[in-house]
Amino acid sequence: MQRIEHRACAGGWQDVYRHHSATLGCDMQFAVYLPPQAATQALPVLYWLSGLTCTEQNFITKAGAQRYAAEHGVIIVAPDTSPRGDGVADAEGYDLGKGAGFYLNATRAPWATHYRMHDYVAQELPALVEASFPATAARAISGHSMGGHGALVIALRNPGRYRSVSAFSPIVAPSQVPWGEKAFTAYLGEDRAAWLAWDASALIAGADERLPLLVDQGEADEFLQTQLQPQRLQQACDAAGHPLTLRLQPGYDHSYYFIASFIGEHIAHHARALRG
């Protein structure tokens, strides 16, 4: 593992590392923010998953999360959104291939060779973080858009692994919207029944753990009706009795201005659960 960025921020350090991922079969980068408390004690970790077209850079440069992480004593780890490299399969367009891993384990060629972001985020990366940094095994997970989908699905598929989960503008029912239909067809094949294992709204009914969900959605989001459709998650949670706090925020769109406006509340939410 090689540290390739090291910057003072909010009393702590915003770093970026590169390492070889055995799960993905390629080199990967991830960002880690170590708040000042990390100099003297082990701290819980919030994993942040970004959206389509993003790398580890978008969140650490735009969200303004470091000062809240420093306030609450939480490490933030932000991985890239897909495998990368010359030998990694790719496609035309922003919503498939590199930058669009959808946090699942692909089963269809040529994607299955490298696109195993679920296992990377849920297993390999936490093992690396907990072995390399002053991090405890208390974990939370959050994300935006495609990353919000990833956060919800990974938490639902791994009961007991996370203390809390939240999302901004998540793709809550990818099996029923264009972004998800395109990606799932490529990564998983034509069998729509297989898609449901990676769809948060479908997973709710059989969830083994009733981990409360916190979701913020901007009402002026340009993708609200076509791609996000948070009402589907609300309906699924209502039917299953699964705790959900869905906050519709007037005037906010899909951008990082929205995330920056509410990330402090999300980090406080996670901090309470992580220290509980």
Rank of each mutant, 00 (worst) to 15 (best):
L46Q: 06
L224W: 11
I154E: 11
V129I: 14
D15Y: 04
P178S: 04
G97K: 03
D199F: 08
F184G: 08
V16R: 06
E190G: 00
Y252N: 08
R157Y: 12
F223H: 13
G143L: 09
A236F: 08
R84N: 14
L128A: 13
G147D: 04
E181Q: 15
M28G: 07
A271I: 04
Q2G: 00
I259N: 05
A200H: 06
Y68N: 03
Q225H: 09
T113V: 13
L125S: 04
Q225L: 14
A138H: 14
A122R: 05
Q37S: 08
L43R: 09
Y120S: 04
C237P: 08
L34A: 09
H72I: 05
L246I: 12
Y103A: 01
R275H: 15
E71M: 07
T107R: 10
N158W: 10
V129M: 08
R116G: 03
L246W: 12
L214I: 03
S82D: 12
C9M: 13
G148I: 02
A122Y: 09
E124D: 11
A260L: 04
C237V: 05
A140I: 07
H242N: 11
D86W: 01
G25C: 11
G97R: 00
I154D: 05
G148N: 05
L96E: 03
S145N: 00
I267N: 00
F168D: 02
T136I: 06
P134N: 11
R272F: 04
L213N: 02
V153M: 10
I259S: 08
Y257S: 09
E265G: 10
D216I: 00
A42H: 14
L274T: 03
L156I: 02
L213Q: 07
R272Q: 13
E181K: 14
G160Q: 12
A63N: 03
G276Q: 10
V74K: 03
G64Q: 07
R161C: 13
I263S: 03
A65M: 12
A239E: 10
H72P: 07
L24H: 00
K62E: 15
L211Y: 04
S82Y: 06
G180P: 14
N105E: 15
R139Q: 05
E209H: 13
N158F: 12
D216A: 00
D119T: 14
Q225M: 11
D80C: 10
L46T: 01
A106I: 01
R116I: 08
A202H: 02
Q249T: 13
D15R: 03
Y256W: 15
A137K: 09
P79D: 04
I154R: 07
A8G: 08
H20F: 15
E124C: 07
G148F: 01
T136S: 14
A42K: 13
G241F: 11
F102W: 12
I154Q: 02
T53A: 06
A186L: 10
G189I: 14
D199Y: 09
P83R: 05
G241A: 12
Y187N: 06
L52I: 05
A151R: 10
H144K: 02
T55I: 02
A70L: 12
